[in-house]
């Protein structure tokens, strides 16, 4: 089988904010009521992360476990762990009413790094989010100009952002243009 490649093959935009297209990772969407402990326990045991609460995202190394909605969770893992995680989740979920979908090739993942204020400024220009008060450890699904996207801050000075793979070039151009030019904050 051919090797997975990211949408923009690792493209980087340098500037006040560095925008980097990250290497492919495993992304698994799990749909099912997150109030059902069978589902959250399966997610926690496969990921090794505690299931976060509303709009939360847990992070450790390359692993992420995000609350995407009352009945949706997103698991991001190193690409090599994809098959094991899919079979592990399916097995652990057992008869729980849930769906496991491999979304690895459906999305693009970017990392933005830079001075914290410049970074918040860049996102604030393209998304209707109050970036002055956006905390670390929270995931925000929102609109990036004309496309859907989601982002979170693993720590101050870093933003990770996902969008659909088909609009990766748009997102990259949008962010790299927002990163230069007049500051809002």
């Amino acid at each position: 089988m051919s090797d997975p490649v990211s949408a923009l093959a690792g493209k980087v935009s340098e500037g006040p904010v560095r925008i980097e297209d990250l290497a492919p990772r495993a992304m698994i969407t799990v749909r099912g009521k997150l109030s059902d402990t069978a589902i959250t326990e399966a997610l926690a045991s496969v990921s090794g992360l505690a299931m976060p609460g509303q709009r939360g995202i847990a992070a450790e190394g390359e692993k992420r476990l995000a609350w995407m909605g009352p009945d949706e969770a997103l698991l991001i893992l190193p690409r090599a762990g994809l098959d094991a995680a899919l079979s592990g989740l399916t097995e652990k979920l057992g008869s729980a009413h849930a769906l496991v979908a491999d979304m690895s090739d459906a999305r693009a993942l970017f990392r933005l790094t830079g001075e914290d204020a410049a970074l918040r400024d860049t996102i604030a220009k393209v998304a209707p989010v109050d970036m002055m008060r956006f905390p670390t450890g929270e995931i925000r699904r929102t609109r990036l100009a004309q496309i859907a996207g989601a982002f979170w801050m693993p720590q101050e000075g870093t933003v990770e952002l996902v969008c659909f793979r088909s609009v990766a070039q748009y997102a990259f151009d949008l962010l790299s243009q927002a990163a230069v030019g007049p500051r809002v904050f």
């Binding site: 509303q54 709009r55 909605g69 009352p70 209707p128 989010v129 925000r140 699904r141 929102t142 609109r143």
Partner: peptide, 12 residues
């Protein structure tokens, strides 16, 4: 009321 986010109308 489902995710608790407060946002302007273009997100809805």
């Amino acid at each position: 009321p489902c995710c608790g986010v407060t946002a302007e109308e273009t997100e809805f």
